[in-house]
Design a binder for these strands. Structure first.
Lengths: 186, 186
DNA sequence: CTCAGATGAGACATCCTTGTCTCATGCTCG
DNA sequence: CGAGCATGAGACAAGGATGTCTCATCTGAG
């Protein structure tokens, strides 16, 4: 209706790009423009080229995941609770999360640096949660990080495929992580 | 030495293609040929084109994962033990496993059909293992399949990154799966 | 030693993608 | 109502990828 905020052309292009590129990394700018419902020239007016679009996507993904993580953890009373709420929030942003992890960030130093910083924050939170008894003392932090990431994506796929609601997928992912890593050790 | 079986050119191209395409789906046939150490014309002599190469990769991945799964489970005394041994075998074939799951199989009906058949076999084994008490009765089979696939890839990445040996990654993945899904339920 | 087969390099044509530009259209605001 | 801005469509040039072909070279087997 009158009060509905129509997404800008810029946002429509980003949204379409996430969806198209996650499904088909080889997709052309023409494919993305078509999916966004805009002309290719319009895409070129908003972005300086394919690399510029990819960079904008990565920055948007980083902004959204950072904001969602901060918002999710602001009322958490423990690191364990924070990790749970962040997991839940990330499951909604699975496409952004996956885009960041799998699109080559090597060619954008500033994206890589921010990605590494967020990784370090996650590792710090994991080590604090371990002290709270969430993870086995001998479980490698690399495995915890891997499992955390993959369960986010598994949850996102459950929601996307219609096999579970967001709340259900979050519960499944959290229970699996919590129970699974309490005993997992080398 | 004299008895070392030199990989054929055909095999070298497939091996290089798995590695290159998993890292960079947009890679050109020239990139793949270079990584295989052969000329692009040679690649074209072995494969009728890019689509033909992708189809051959998918068929090879299906053949190898099927053989490895069969070999892994031939001495298993229970479905749970079989799932464990298959998980261990798949972690070594993580690149094939991931290629099958993420390269678009929609355009090859015979690949899709075989993929679905192998999925059904896995689901059957999961349901039998559930009867053995491996999984919670209320845990959705879709979640079990998702978690199984993702832990395979998580384990493969641990090995590839040098964070764990194959045996260690297998143990971590199995413990995480077993402990995590024993309690995970909706 | 010779021949056949496999291969590498490079040329060539075609197609696709990208980036730029121009013109026309529509919408919104003053 | 008019102007300005955003956009779509299409043309055009350039570059890269692909597929085909030819010639030269090397290796292995007979």
């Amino acid at each position: 209706m009158l009060d509905i905020v129509r997404p800008t052309t810029f946002d429509a292009i980003l949204e379409a790009a996430f969806a198209v590129l996650n499904a088909e990394p080889k997709a052309s700018l023409g494919d993305i423009a078509a999916a966004a419902g805009v002309g290719r020239a319009t895409l070129h007016r908003h972005f300086g080229g394919r690399e510029d679009l990819i960079r904008a996507l990565a920055q948007q993904a980083q902004r959204e995941t950072e904001q969602a993580a901060n918002k999710a953890s602001e009322h958490a009373l423990s690191y364990s609770a924070a990790l749970r709420e962040i997991l839940k929030a990330m499951i909604l942003l699975g496409d952004r999360h996956w885009f960041l992890a799998h699109e080559s960030m090597g060619r954008f130093p500033e994206i890589r640096a921010e990605y590494d910083r967020q990784r370090d924050e996650l590792i710090d939170a994991i080590e604090e949660a371990r002290k709270e008894g969430l993870f086995h003392a001998a479980c490698p932090v690399e495995w915890i990080v891997q499992t955390y990431d993959h369960l986010i994506h598994a949850g996102w796929e459950m929601v996307r495929a219609g096999h579970a609601t967001h709340a259900q997928a979050s519960d499944l992912a959290w229970l699996t992580l919590k129970s699974g890593l309490k005993k997992a050790r080398l």
